[in-house]
Design a protein around this nucleic acid. Structure first.
Lengths: 283, 283
DNA sequence: CGCTTAATTGAATCCAATCAAATTAAGTGG
DNA sequence: CCACTTAATTTGATTGGATTCAATTAAGCG
């Protein structure tokens, strides 16, 4: 960005951000160890939700699985697979639907005025994307497949109608929206590169663990540059933090996955930027 | 922050953040010039919404002003005035209502693990606070009066019921939620102190202008430290940026208000962190 | 196996934080 | 209303973490 006129122009960007062309990314490691999701086996069909779906628990638990499942089914369409680099939706497109990730990893991103890629989030199966499009009836970001991705799309209008009929659905939607606010608020703030990385690793790990993956091992489908652009740090810094953490015996860095050695240390590094909200439970 | 030992506790903060005791803050300047809101004159009563209220337009425009206004009225309670430093709600409290600011300025904030105050936002009349409490049925932040504040509280449960009956209300709620996501997402990201300040000033100014205030003049009810904690920069930096901007003839800094001289320069400084979304209009 | 891209490593630089201190407002009590 | 005390803000000097620049190493792919 330059401040011209009165301001002498700082010609250089604060970050050198590679502006990738979004071509094919390398598929995941063939080693299936880290990538087979227990949760993905019962993956839903024309009559049932995917087990990972944010709405399935709600509907099934509330006895809305008969008629209303049918209703919902009208507005659910399974889409995919998307190959790495393919867009699920595009910034500027008219907002018409929210999407649930069924399989794979989706990243949402925009560009700032400098042209730097700003990654809003990485989204795992069961997570909902596109809610930020409601405000202006336009997606304010791109959504792109990091690896091979399957999604469900819910026409938002129909979803809203259903929400009006089924309180639990409405509540779920409100909660999802609210959760996104909180998540985004956690991302903001001034944190050191170490803290950001620690929080990022823990957040991802926790979310994977919720889905039945090992908590000791963390697949990293995205590139270092992606991590950097998500945390607003330089890619070189990502490298260096990984190195330091490995030297300190906190984690073991393999190419595209991380092993946790001393998870506690990471947790100590994190202040309040955790994505996983620990709900007040019995002490 | 450094990685010492096997991560011995990080003793030093990244920012020295004064942890204020939230006692009385100086009341606004007696000079009414900058503080008389045209929009505040018709301030609502038992039968009508405040003209600034986020929901008033919706209801009135949709012809829901007769019966449903009554319905709504059940769940609306005017509260206040809050004196500077008084809390509207407190972090950890059970979430039961969202609030609309009627008059004055509210700031929402939390503390990170370092004890630093992290200010989520400053909220003007007509804006809704507390939506981030939906997720966990608990307010994840404090809301405190910056100056003398009046609010309306909407029991969220009743609001949800009403939303189920009146599609426009539901839609409005969804949009408000979604707007908060977008707002929070704009706050995140790596920006220079100059950019942050420019964006902050423009955002506030635009929001005031929407409410009928002069676009040339901007009241700054909050302290420099508050600005700093909102933008995640040091208070000294706030001072310095003000100074530089003044030297460059971009703004004129008076104690608690700003005059815009070269608004264009500020806009050039801002990349995409603007809060005001320019909606696609006829070109 | 060579080619192209991703990731790492090293050295230099810079913006903003921190430390320290002066200055200006604001608040209080006589 | 003034002298005094305290808090807020500004200003200067220094430091440091992370970016940037530069170059090497590793990996993936045809």
């Amino acid at each position: 960005m330059q401040i011209h006129g009165a301001y002498s122009a700082p010609t250089s960007h604060r970050h050198r951000t590679h502006m990738p062309e979004h071509k094919h990314i390398h598929p995941r490691a063939k080693d299936g160890t880290f990538f087979t999701s227990p949760a993905m086996e019962d993956d839903g069909n024309e009559l049932h939700f995917c087990s990972t779906c944010a709405f399935s628990q709600v509907c099934l638990a509330e006895g809305y699985d008969k008629n209303d499942l049918q209703d919902l089914h009208v507005l659910v369409s399974h889409i995919g697979p998307f190959q790495p680099g393919e867009h699920i939706f595009t910034q500027g497109n008219r907002f018409n639907a929210i999407a649930a990730v069924r399989a794979g990893m989706v990243k949402t991103y925009t560009h700032d005025a400098h042209g730097r890629e700003k990654i809003l989030g990485f989204h795992l199966p069961g997570e909902i994307i596109g809610l930020n499009g409601i405000e202006n009836n336009t997606y304010p970001c791109h959504a792109i497949a990091v690896d091979t991705v399957m999604t469900c799309h819910f026409t938002f209008e129909k979803m809203a109608i259903l929400a009006a009929k089924i309180p639990t659905i409405q509540k779920k939607l409100f909660k999802l929206l609210s959760a996104d606010i909180n998540h985004a608020q956690h991302l903001a703030g001034d944190y050191s590169a170490n803290e950001k990385m620690a929080a990022f690793l823990l957040s991802l790990s926790n979310r994977y663990a919720q889905r039945g993956f090992s908590a000791q091992t963390l697949p990293l489908a995205m590139s270092r540059v992606d991590i950097a652009n998500h945390l607003s740090i330089a890619p070189e810094t990502v490298s260096r933090v990984f190195k330091r953490l490995q030297e300190k015996q906190v984690i073991k860095v393999h190419r595209h996955h991380i092993e946790f050695i001393e998870r506690g240390t990471l947790q100590d590094m994190v202040s309040d930027i955790q994505t996983t909200h620990t709900k007040p439970s019995t002490p």
